[in-house]
Each structure stands twice: as structure tokens, then as C-alpha cells.
Write a protein that binds this DNA or RNA. Sequence first.
DNA 1: TTGTATGCGTTATCAA
DNA 2: TTGATAACGCATACAA
Lengths: 335, 335
Amino acid sequence: MNVTIADLAKMTGLAKSTISGVLNNKSGFSEKTRQKVLKAAEQYGYVPNEIARGLTSKFTKTIGLVIKDITNPFYNQITKGVQEIANAFGYTVFLCSSGEDHEAEINQIEAMVGRRVDGLIIAPLLEEVTFDHIYELKRKSLPFALLGKIPGLDCDWVEFDDYSGGRQAAEHLIENGHTQIGFITGLRTSRASKMRYSAFKDTLVANGLTLNPDYVFHEAQSFMDGVEIGQRVLQMDRRPTALICFDDVIAMGVIKALEQSGLKVPDDLSVIGFDDIDMMLFPLTTVSIPTYEAGKTLARILFERIFDGETREFKQKVFDVKLVTRNSVKRLHQS
Amino acid sequence: MNVTIADLAKMTGLAKSTISGVLNNKSGFSEKTRQKVLKAAEQYGYVPNEIARGLTSKFTKTIGLVIKDITNPFYNQITKGVQEIANAFGYTVFLCSSGEDHEAEINQIEAMVGRRVDGLIIAPLLEEVTFDHIYELKRKSLPFALLGKIPGLDCDWVEFDDYSGGRQAAEHLIENGHTQIGFITGLRTSRASKMRYSAFKDTLVANGLTLNPDYVFHEAQSFMDGVEIGQRVLQMDRRPTALICFDDVIAMGVIKALEQSGLKVPDDLSVIGFDDIDMMLFPLTTVSIPTYEAGKTLARILFERIFDGETREFKQKVFDVKLVTRNSVKRLHQS
DNA sequence: TTGTATGCGTTATCAA
DNA sequence: TTGATAACGCATACAA
């Protein structure tokens, strides 16, 4: 069905090894045979079978990328960065979205290992979850780089300083006179959410403020979750004056809910998000996260490991995050 | 490095074929050997080499998906739909984004063919471009399904009724009394853009209106493009009263530009988009496009072709699109 | 019930 | 400069 090297050998009357040699630009062939081979390959539309090639060469020129949610701009940027570097290396990437499901994550990774990818980039669930499948990769000494570290696991990883991000957001609100501050967490399995939330609580305490448990909303994941929480907030008798949202998508949902009810951000409620995504209509004050850069860095680190092997030290990199103030936080009188 | 069937055979003292048989759930093995094999596989972390398997079995259980822009929600939804069906079939998908670049599209497809994917789903550039690489797929009788048809090429495809969408948008504006209507096109290589724009022009003519060439903006692709065009529009001496944007992302950009200058949609400018993406803060009137459904349909059609072969007729499906009126179009006095 | 031989499409090694 | 052959890891047909 597909034309192979053996076919070309038959057509040209040359040996398989000759065809292979020419096609791989090895030296030591006469110009005449070279031309003959090239012409035949062109004519019959020969495309080398990378699979068979991978069987012998130990490189499949393929990496796997496992993200959590393909519809979130955060991962879009990560993916874009990874793809760009991978393509520059002549690599193709298998992309899978776990959909924040641990089982799916395990299965996707196994599928990729089965496909003998040369390496993996994984954004794993990091909380309330086991890591056997990651340790298994290490045992197999299959190169991989993680978005987010696993305590006690020495490997390549990249992460964001989420604790700092949470603190910056909280401090900004406090500096602007807010004392009734709410928080929307992401999924329980999200390390980023946990860190941001911890930082938020710590900052409150450090500033002598107390957290009203009614102002904490858990397990938001989507735009619609943001909308629903926004609706709940605006029906409260005593609303918080500000709300920190796990990410921009959720923040947009919250803002949507408010605007639908005729309320205004930041006049009626201050909102801070995380990620600093494009496609943000609202002038949202948010914690900017270098996702695209991180994606490229992850890929670069992975390729170093793939090519240099296990010898080199593991690379770890924490990206700084930075609050970008725009116009979604109201300055309150006091302070 | 990676544990193989041969390794397991050595460890257990059984033959390779026995291992293979047990692992593939063939009948005719004693419970004792079965357990022995399974236990060894478990213990050594055996993962079948899908690549070697693909060499013999003719199925790599892999499909390729080539989209145009991974950061656009439109393609996120397509991708999500495709992934979902593929995973249900036990397939893994190679994802590539061509970035609207024809060369890249060709290279990505070749890379996937080289990887011997069982089939391909492609969202190709459709205008001002050659299709040799697609015809080549057909020649190879490699199953593929297209998002958007290629004139004269009999194959599986799915598309949206973009002409109808363009008409609905234009008619809606006209019904609301608009006569000074502008249009932002997508890239020259976009069939969807071309159809929507044609429909727009035709509808204008059919209603006795004339198109002001100053009101047409070409080649927008991103949120930022939308912002720039928005800024240009609001600096015009005589602005259009309404603007149809190639997609929601661009529409958001336009709205952003207006709001930054203190202008209001729809009071100062009516705006219509296409796609009906989530994460839309603004109550945008837009043409809703069943992207997620289309993604699933593309995958289903592809798998039918993969499994049933060339015998069955090619499937073609045009999805209806529908204007969703929200609050970005102003009703003008007359009419 | 288990083992042996062969082929899948390459590349690499060696021989001619 | 070219050709023959083994090997990669698996599935399959066939033999024991």
C-alpha cells in the first residue's frame, strides 16, 4: 500500500541498503545512483516510515505533551511554546488533555510510553493524588519534564511562583483598603490553587485580617463556574468588597455575572485574576504568568535531557509572576 | 532499556509467542502460565511497544489532527471533539498547528504520514493555495477527513454554512436599520472568511445598499488585530454604524478598543461576531457555530473510513449556523 | 498448551 | 561504490 525502500530497490534494481544510504545523505555513492534513487523516491511519493526507523534508531522523533485542559488559554500558550521548539528540532508532538482527570492522565501517559516517545512533558495533577505513574517513568529512565514539581522527586521541572502571586494579589487589595476579601479556588488537585490560596490566607493573617469562610468558594474550573459563583456572591447580604479568582477565565465568569445584574467591576466588587490571558476584554488586574516562555523552556530542557542523557544534572526553574494592575480594583477610602 | 516481550520470555522461561498470546488475551493458555506472564509483565512494568506492533498490524492506533491556530477557541473546540472520539476508540492523536502557514501545513502532514497515522483530520488553508499534498493523501489512499471542502476533490469532509452565516449577520443589521455596515475579513487563505464576506456583499446589494470600501478591513487574525482595527475605526470621520467581524476573537478586540476610548457597544457601534465562543464577557450578537459537534463528527467519519475502508461512499456534511442575538446591535430609528 | 519461524520497513555492519 | 544480512519488538501461522 505504502511505497517502501524495498519497492524502490525493486524499481531501480539497486539494493535496499543503497536506497537507504542515499536517502539519508550518506557519502560514498556515485552521482548516477544518487540521482536514480532520488528520482524514483520523488516519483513514487516515498515517505520514510518513521516507525520502522524508530525501531532501529532508538529515536522516534516524537514527544508527548499531557496538559490538563485544552480549552484554557493558559495551556494553549504552554502548548504553543512546546510545539514551536519541538518543530524546530524536527519533532512531532502527541498532545493529550487529561481533562483534570487522574485516570485519564495515567492512561494518556501509558499510551505515549507505548508509542515510545523520546520524552514527555507533563502538567500533572499535583494534589490529593498518587505519582506512581511518574515514578515509573523515572524507573524506565524515560526523559520527562514536569510543569510543577513533585516533592521528593528529583527530575526536570518548571514551575511558577504561585505563592508569590497569591501574596501579591492579596497585598494589592489590602493596600487599596480592602478587608472583606473573598477567594475562588481551583480544583483540589491543583497545586497552583493551593499555593495561591495559602499565600492569600497567610497575607490576611500577616495584616491582622480575618478570613470570612463565607467568602471562599471552592473547585471552580470553567467560565460557567465563575458565572455561578458570581451570581451567588451578588445575592449575599454582606458581600465581600473584593474577590481573588483562581484564573482569568473564572474571573471573566464572575464579571459576566455581575454585569448581567447591572453591577459594575470594580465599583461594586473588585476582582483579581491569574494568568493575564489575551482575549481579555475587561481591564482586569491580574497576576501575569509567563506561560508561553515556560512552554518553550520545558521543551528546551526536555530536549537537553533527550540528547545529553541522564548524565547532566536535573534542571529546575521557577518563573516569577507579577501583578499587573489595570482597572478592576477599587481604591477604598481608608488606608 | 525498555522491557520487551523477549525479556519477559527470558524471565519466565516461556516463549515469546506465549507471552504475546497471553498479553493479547488469546485463548488456549493454562491459568498457571497466564498468571505467570501477567505477574511478570506487571512486575517489570512492561508496556507493549505500539510501534513494533504497528509494524506488523497495519494499525498504529494513531490519527493526526492538523489545525490552523491552537490559541483560537474555535479550534480548541474542534480539537476537544476529535480527542474525545479518538480516545473512545483507543486512539492517540498527533496534534499540529499550522499557524495558518501553508508550508508548515505541508510539513506537518508529511511528518504524520511518515509516522503512519491511520488517518488524518485536516483543517487546510483553502484559498490561494495548492492542494497537491492533499491529493497525494488520496493517491496513497490514506484515510482523511477535511474541515472544509476542496472543489473537485471527492473525499470525506465537514463544513459550516458560512455563506448563510454571513447573510444572517448582514440581514440582522439591515433589519435593525443599519446601512453603513463595515466588515473585517480573516486571512486571504480562509474559505470561511471569503464566504462570509461574499454573503455580506450580496446581501447588501440585494437590499439596495452600497458598500463603502473604507469600511472593509482585511486580514485580521488575532485579538490584537481586532484592537488595531477598532482603533482605526473610531478615528474615522464618518464611522460605520455596524461592523461584522470574521470571528469572536477579533470582535472582542474591536470592543476592547472602543471601550478603551470610552465608546460603547452597541450605542456607538454595533458589532457582530462569528463562533459564539465561551469565555465571552460581552453580550455579543454572533453567529453560533457547532464546532465541538463538528470535531466529533469529523472523527467519527474518519474512523468509519479507517475501519470500513474505501468501499463506502464519501460522507459530506454541512452544519447549519445560526445567529444568536444578544446585545451588541443597536436598533436604529428607521425601518 | 507451548515453541519456532517469518515478516513488517528501516538502519547498520560487514563483505564484495 | 554497492550489496547482502542481521537486528529492532512484535504478531501470526504453523509445528510440536
